[in-house]
Amino acid sequence: MISPEERNRTGRGCLLGNWVEERATTSLDKTGPESDIHKKGHQGILTVDWSSKLEDTSTQKSAFTSSKGTSAQQKGFRYELMKEHLIKSISEQVHAELTAKPAAAELHSVTRRDYTAGGFQWVRPTPSTDRDYKTDQAITFWRENFDKIQGVTAVRNRDAPFKKNASFTCPITECLDPNPENDLDTEEK
């Protein structure tokens, strides 16, 4: 720490004008720790009124103001009209692009678009066998292999092996057929 005598000496490496200033503020340096003085500076040098505020404008701002411009027209009347017309037309184009309605979608099926070829005449094919899908039984794996399935009741008609068979509830006299093999043989022929 620097003693007060050393602080008042002129050989501390300060300039002559600064030394005069240091001598003038010596009484203020003793108000608090030296570190606070170096951080915050001396209080009360610029003003004694602690509630006063600094000025917003500097002397340069108050002396030199920007020019307000002349009252004469800077650009020509035709130039102003062209500029307004150009701004209006460009804004209309941009607005039309941004709010454009989408084009109507073409509603075509895949068949119409991809498979319909010009000059093709469709002809109904002739059936290879005489079948009627409304009355004939469907051809399935189980119908083809009904004789190999266990638990199937007696089959009277080979074309409809799974039709209702109520022979187990009929009296024996009615369900016994004198020639049951004849039914199956005649159907095969």
Rank of each mutant, 00 (worst) to 15 (best):
W122T: 08
S71L: 07
A100M: 05
V48I: 09
G11H: 04
C170H: 05
T70P: 07
R124W: 02
E187F: 10
C175H: 12
L46E: 08
S89K: 13
N18D: 13
D114F: 04
A100N: 06
T135C: 01
A117S: 10
S91P: 00
E34T: 09
T116N: 11
S3G: 07
Q74E: 11
T65K: 12
T173N: 12
S62M: 13
F168W: 07
T173G: 13
K101S: 13
A103Q: 10
A24M: 07
K40D: 15
R156Q: 10
S3C: 06
K148M: 12
T47A: 09
V20Q: 10
T70H: 09
W142Q: 11
R156A: 15
E34G: 04
H38S: 09
D159Y: 15
I172P: 03
E21M: 15
S58W: 00
T65P: 05
D147G: 07
T129F: 08
S67E: 15
I37Y: 02
A105H: 02
T70W: 04
A160S: 10
H42C: 02
T135P: 00
Y115L: 11
G151W: 00
S3E: 09
D147H: 08
S71V: 05
V123S: 06
L98H: 02
R12K: 08
E106R: 08
W50C: 02
G118D: 14
S35C: 10
W19A: 15
L46P: 01
Q137H: 04
S91T: 12
F162Q: 00
D185I: 15
T31K: 07
T99P: 00
C14N: 04
R156V: 14
L16V: 13
M1T: 14
L107I: 11
S51Y: 11
D130C: 05
R23V: 13
L28F: 03
P171K: 12
Y79C: 03
A105Y: 02
S71I: 04
Y115M: 07
K75D: 04
R12E: 03
L86D: 04
A96S: 08
P4N: 06
R158G: 01
S67V: 06
E55K: 11
G119C: 03
Q121A: 03
K39V: 07
P33G: 02
L46H: 04
D185Q: 15
A24D: 08
A24N: 07
I149S: 00
L86I: 11
A24I: 09
Q73E: 13
F162K: 00
G13C: 00
A96E: 09
W50T: 04
S71F: 04
P33T: 03
G118M: 06
E174S: 05
D56C: 05
L28E: 08
I149A: 02
P161H: 00
I87F: 05
P4W: 06
K75V: 10
H38Q: 13
P33H: 02
N18V: 15
G11R: 09
E144H: 06
T10W: 06
L86Y: 03
T153E: 14
H85R: 13
S67Q: 08
I172T: 11
A103P: 11
K68V: 14
A24P: 00
E6A: 15
G118S: 12
P161N: 00
I172K: 13
V110Y: 03
R113E: 08
A154M: 06
G118P: 14
T26I: 12
D185V: 15
S89L: 14
T169C: 10
Y115K: 07
G17F: 07
M82F: 07
